[in-house]
Amino acid sequence: MDKILFIGGGQMTEAIIRPLIAKKIYSANNIFVNDINDSRLHYLQNMYNIKPTKQIKANADIIVLGVRPQDQWAQVIKKLKPENKNTIIISIIAGVTISQIKQSLTVDIPVIRAIPNTLTDTEFGYSGVATNTQDQSVVKKYLVIKFFSSFGKLELLDESLLDIFTGYAVAGPNYIYYFYESIVDAGVLAGLHRDLAKRIAIENLYGAAEMLRLSKKHPRELLDINNSPAGVGINGLYELNNSDFAAALQRSVQTAVKRTIELGQINKHKPPMPTQKPTNE
Rank of each mutant, 00 (worst) to 15 (best):
M1P: 08
M1E: 05
D2E: 12
I4L: 10
F6N: 01
G10A: 08
M12T: 07
E14K: 09
I21Q: 00
Y26A: 13
Y26V: 10
N30V: 10
F32R: 06
V33P: 02
N34Y: 13
D35Q: 08
S39R: 07
R40E: 11
H42Y: 11
N49M: 12
T53K: 05
K54E: 03
K54H: 14
Q55D: 15
I56Y: 03
I63W: 02
Q72G: 06
A74G: 09
Q75Y: 08
I77D: 00
I77C: 05
N84S: 06
I88P: 00
I88G: 01
I92M: 11
I92S: 01
I93M: 10
I93Y: 02
T97K: 11
I98V: 15
S99Q: 14
T106G: 04
N117E: 01
L119E: 04
D121H: 12
G125Y: 03
Q134C: 05
S137C: 09
S137G: 07
K140V: 03
Y142C: 02
V144Y: 00
I145M: 05
I145Y: 06
K146P: 00
F147S: 02
F148D: 01
S149A: 05
K153L: 11
L156I: 15
S160V: 13
S160F: 05
L161E: 09
D163C: 09
I164S: 13
F165A: 10
Y168L: 13
N174W: 03
I176W: 04
I176A: 10
Y178P: 00
Y178V: 03
F179K: 02
Y180I: 15
E181N: 09
S182I: 14
V184Y: 03
V188W: 04
L189D: 05
A190Y: 14
A197M: 02
N204Q: 07
G207C: 08
G207I: 08
A208D: 03
R213D: 08
H218N: 13
P219L: 07
R220C: 03
L223S: 08
N226P: 02
N226G: 06
V232N: 02
G236P: 01
E239A: 12
E239V: 09
N242G: 11
D244L: 11
A246L: 13
L249G: 04
Q250F: 12
S252W: 03
V253F: 15
Q254R: 12
A256S: 10
R259N: 05
T260Q: 08
I261L: 14
I261E: 06
I266G: 00
N267L: 08
N267K: 11
K277Q: 07
K277I: 14
T279E: 05
